[in-house]
Every structure is written in C-alpha cells, then in structure tokens.
C-alpha cells in the first residue's frame, strides 16, 4: 500500500515542500480553514500529514482526538519559517519522564 502524504501549512511552507516533492500541499490562511482541511484529509485516509507547530498548537485537542491511540494517521509538526517555538518543556520529554520516572534523554 502506497500511502499518501500531505502538507497543511502556510503558503511558504507548502511551496517549500512542493519543491521537495510532496505534491499534496494545502496552503491555509487561518485556523478554521486548517481545522477543516485536517478533518478532510484524515477522512480521506492520508497516512502522513505534515503541519506546522503553530497550527499544531492551535488545534491540539482536535489532533489528539484524531490521532491518539491509533497508529495512523500520523500528524507530524515541524517548525515553520520563523523557527521552532520555544517551549519550557518538551512534551515528548515530559511523556518519557512520566513513563520511566526519571529524566532519560539528555
């Protein structure tokens, strides 16, 4: 099964990934649009959806409900043109800490 990959992001990021070879780019202007597009893509069985950290932060609840406890779709958040968002705690590191009980990664 060849899986479909899509990008939901701002115009520049989408252009960049199109240059890289992902043809399914969905430039979105605001969060309503992003949310609608995301739902649409998930229902269409896209298995990998790349989005920006900004969109990911805004739509956190929706993404969690769509993806948690299931293997697919995979929604990957990447930094956009203005760089990655500085967070006090890395959510992944928090999770690891909670599971193992001690700080493991670095």
């Amino acid at each position: 099964m060849t899986s479909k990959v899509a990008v939901i992001a701002d115009q520049d990021t989408v252009t960049g990934f199109m240059l890289g070879g992902i043809k399914e780019g969905y430039p979105v202007e605001d969060m309503q649009e992003a949310s609608k597009t995301l739902e649409d893509l998930v229902s269409k069985d896209y298995s990998i959806i790349i989005t920006t950290e900004k969109i990911g932060d805004e739509l956190r609840d929706k993404i969690n409900s769509l993806t948690s406890e299931r293997a697919l779709p995979m929604i990957i958040e990447i930094p956009d043109k203005s760089g990655s968002i500085e967070r006090e705690t890395d959510p992944l590191r928090e999770l690891i800490k909670r599971v193992i009980g001690v700080e493991m990664v670095k």
Partner: peptide, 29 residues
C-alpha cells in the same frame, strides 16, 4: 532549497514514526 527540502522530508517522516511509536508505547506502558 529543493535539495534541502528533499532531505528534510526523509528526516521528518522518520521523526514522525519514532515520535508516534514513543507516544503509543508510553500510553500502553
């Protein structure tokens, strides 16, 4: 730019796989 995006895409997919696996395993653990 194209070349760098191509490289990034491969890394992003791998990162996605790893992060997803970690999350799923963590919930189960």
């Amino acid at each position: 730019a194209s070349r760098k995006f191509e490289e990034s895409i491969a890394q992003i997919i791998e990162l996605g796989e790893i992060e997803k696996t970690i999350t799923l395993l963590a919930v189960e653990i």
